[in-house]
């Protein structure tokens, strides 16, 4: 294989990994606080369509990404109100959020179908980002770098800062955290809002960077894969990076095989690969953990009531 192909494969992997990494980072923080939000796919779709719409309206990509994060937070707040304030079932509410996001995004996005916008360009000047070899390091848009930096920042936040410690305490033992005097519900709501912002951003990465257009169900289940990635990573941000790249590799293999016109495997089977790989990877990680109780936050998915 020539260097050019290797470079382009590496680049495709990193780019494909980016939205999944963003969304799963958000969900990791949410789950660390003891909340399971299954609505990632729905929040991503709302972010994708609102981001695209804002960019169409203003011509600004920055406005698009900001709108996407706002849309993610707004939808996440529906979830927070239902599960945290009214202590509704988190699984059911998360599912409702996904169904809602699929519908709403399709409804809002109707006028945008078929339109295009200028996509997110590489961050650095062309001398570096178009360089035949150096582009493997310098040829990405800001969010590819941003997602990796955010992974490090999240790891640092959770392990080495006081608010991070409190967040984890809330996820491990909500009643103890409450007894010490921490506002459990408010902390969880903040985590859910962060998860929404990240999911929205991840969605907009689809509609403004990967394929600068809007189509119904654009994210094609990637939000669910992000959820799986959190389990795969055993709730550790560093391992999310590994998982996201692994997923990026599977997606890249699918693209490459299609591009080279592989006839030994029908395109439909190639399209199954990301989902099958997710099941296999989840199984492998669970096999390794079998016996031990796993590393999920102790209060994950359980409603908190003060009385």
């Amino acid at each position: 294989m020539s260097t050019t192909i290797v470079i382009s494969i590496i680049m495709t992997i990193l780019i494909a990994a980016t939205p999944i990494l963003l969304a799963s980072l958000g969900e990791l923080v949410v789950e660390k606080s003891g909340v399971l939000n299954l609505g990632v796919e729905g929040m991503m779709l709302c972010g994708a369509v609102c981001g695209f719409g804002a960019t169409v309206a203003t011509g600004s990509l920055l406005a698009g990404f900001l709108a996407a994060m706002a849309a993610g937070v707004a939808t996440a707040m529906i979830f927070a109100f239902l599960t945290l304030t009214l202590s509704a079932n988190q699984v059911a509410t998360g599912l409702a959020l996904t169904i809602f996001g699929v519908g709403v995004s399709s409804l809002i996005g109707k006028p945008f179908v078929g339109r295009t916008v200028g996509r997110l360009e590489p961050l650095l000047p062309a001398a570096l980002s178009d360089h035949p070899v150096l582009r493997v390091v310098f040829g990405y848009d800001i969010l590819v770098y941003g997602a990796i930096a955010l992974t490090a920042a999240t790891a640092w936040f959770l392990t080495s800062t006081r608010p991070g410690l409190i967040l984890r305490a809330v996820g491990e033992s909500d009643s103890s955290a409450h007894a010490i005097g921490y506002p459990v519900i408010a902390i969880r709501a903040a985590a859910v809002a962060f998860g929404g912002a990240m999911a929205g951003l991840a969605g907009a990465y689809f509609s403004l960077a990967l394929t600068p257009m809007w189509a119904d169900r654009l994210t094609a289940g990637r939000g669910w894969i992000a959820l799986a990635l959190v389990v795969f990573a055993s709730w550790k941000p560093g391992r999310l990076l590994l998982g996201a790249w692994l997923f990026g590799a599977v997606a890249t293999f699918e693209l490459q095989a299609k591009a080279m016109g592989a006839t030994w495997l029908a395109p439909e089977f190639l399209a199954m690969l990301p989902y099958l790989a997710t099941v296999v990877v989840l199984t492998l990680i669970s096999m390794r953990r079998a016996g031990a109780e796993g590393s999920a936050p102790a209060c994950l998915g359980k409603p908190f009531a003060t009385a």
Partner: peptide, 20 residues
């Protein structure tokens, strides 16, 4: 649009979970 029915159905579940 066709998606309106889906939004309607999802809102129904939201409200049900809320009034529960």
């Amino acid at each position: 649009p066709q998606a309106a029915a889906g939004v309607f159905q999802a809102m129904l579940l939201f409200f049900l979970l809320a009034v529960d």
